[in-house]
Design a protein around this nucleic acid. Sequence first.
DNA 1: CCGCTTCATGTGAACGTGCACAGCATGACC
DNA 2: GGTCATGCTGTGCACGTTCACATGAAGCGG
Lengths: 341, 341
Amino acid sequence: MSNPVRRQRPTIHDVARVAGVSRGTVSRVLNGGHHVSPAAAEAVNSAIRKTGYVVNRHARSLITGRSGSAAFLLTEPQERFFEDPNFNVLLRGCTQALAAHDIPLLLMIAGSRDEQRRIVRYVTAGHVDGVLLVSSHTGDPVAAQLARAGIPVVACGKPMDPRAGRLAHVAADDREGAREMVRHLLAAGRRRIGTIAGPQDTPGGVDRLAGFREVLAEAGLPFDESLVETGDYGRASGAAGARRLLARHPDLDGLFVASDLMARGALEALARAGRSVPEQVAVGGFDDSAAALASAPALTTVRQPWDRISQEMVRVLLARIAGEDTSAVILPTELVVRDTA
Amino acid sequence: MSNPVRRQRPTIHDVARVAGVSRGTVSRVLNGGHHVSPAAAEAVNSAIRKTGYVVNRHARSLITGRSGSAAFLLTEPQERFFEDPNFNVLLRGCTQALAAHDIPLLLMIAGSRDEQRRIVRYVTAGHVDGVLLVSSHTGDPVAAQLARAGIPVVACGKPMDPRAGRLAHVAADDREGAREMVRHLLAAGRRRIGTIAGPQDTPGGVDRLAGFREVLAEAGLPFDESLVETGDYGRASGAAGARRLLARHPDLDGLFVASDLMARGALEALARAGRSVPEQVAVGGFDDSAAALASAPALTTVRQPWDRISQEMVRVLLARIAGEDTSAVILPTELVVRDTA
DNA sequence: CCGCTTCATGTGAACGTGCACAGCATGACC
DNA sequence: GGTCATGCTGTGCACGTTCACATGAAGCGG
């Protein structure tokens, strides 16, 4: 009747003893409850409550070979991601979506070569069941190694390289989002429409530019390469692009900019050039980031459904872990009309 | 000589066989290498390279009772944190500092009651060795439960409640930072200095206001309660506070604002009231956030050493996990002089 | 009443590691 | 040469769980 000095955490064995059944039965109740009589199940559940038992994931992982956790992997220019509010929405959304399945999320940042090696070793060692990948270009060596090792990976954003087909991905429909924005500019009577595109080595940059071109062509407007500028998604490049466009086309009356940050830069350049927005030049951005509302005038933009993207990434990842072969998911964007167009 | 059909991951046993030693010796090499002859150690290391062995953390955790991982726990108003660029620096810094010790970081968000329960269960079950806590008020129920269960917890920011002494914490020196800024305003000849303080239920808000008062008193300026306004760290409350201060004190020539966001709001209000900055009113902020540089004029502010804070949090956490009783660490701030003061 | 199936339950083994302990060789010292 | 200390190495066990298999009971049709 004497208590042990050190109070141990209750194990499945304790539960079995209290419930008057065997360890196997408790284990069955824990994992699905098939092949267990209602009476036994009830006894086990009550014993679990009574003892305060929680499963030891380490023991479980050791035998099953699965960790019950997932990683959020960030490669490449981490600074840019961390500064991007949308990235934060994504990170939060993924964390919470996985938490609903009782799966903890490991945050991993692959910066240096050393960090990359460590991450590959950790993940391929089976200490993570799957990986949510955020990377600007998907020729990423880390991602490739993981995919080759058979780790389920779901990327955020369309892969640049279609032959990197082993990666599942979830992305917003950049092309259709761009199309919608340009149609909106056309509907407002704009005919001399320029664009500041994103980097052409990112799929988003390519698709938004493609959407822009398609709609102009469909509207029967002559294609003019001099109406296209390219930036790096940053504020400064937006301002520079707008200046160059205005120099070439003083009669510009519409501008589709591939990111809100660049759009803000473009607005400054337009103001400095004495153009009124939206009266003389209508401006549309992309992202619906905080920058869109940072100062007046509020930016008309295209919203990407980041909350849904995170949910879908988790859904696809869990499906892949379960062995299903879900691959690409493309989600619709939403046009947000404010003051600039 | 026939290979097995399925290639298993190499275990410590395989390494031992290849190296021609026992499992125990391999284990010793892995954990510190004490009591191992150089020859044996070399044989083991070469065998590890040859087999591509990586330790199975699940098995190790099962026997040691330690997980080799830590959690980054976010409670309360998650939105505010995720929008705060400094928070991102902190999260990134902690992740990388822990990665250097080969410790993965689990991101946990305690929003709903249900999430809180799940997190407490997970952590107290021993699936995490320690917790890095970010919470605005440290009377936090989740933190209290974890501390009570004996989990090492290191909080970011000073606890409001000194009797919550079981939590270690790392914080910037808000009081001295505020003192330095106010001294800077005094040195510039300002004598009619107001402040927009932060919420008085947060330690940062209290300390920054205390520093403000102390320096004025030391300078022999009469204390005037009507020079104090209180905001919620947000832009709008800064603008409102500045308007009220100006109404009461049209001759205001200096303003210490407890956050950059509020400072931006104050700058707008000052501009609208026709005051020139810094000629008529010198303005100092706090945080050195992106808002400080968001638009002209660039804000003079107090920088908190977020990179060092994250490093110290990790250092203190590892010390606590190792059983040492490191507690409070206060780090110096840095005055960043730009255009507004 | 028998043989067959179905289903709930118990049992032993295995997962890969760390640790305590025992054994063994070597060398030093009396 | 014997005793003892010292330092390296091997072995068995334990950690808590899942899984395959065995067992036995119950149901059922002939």
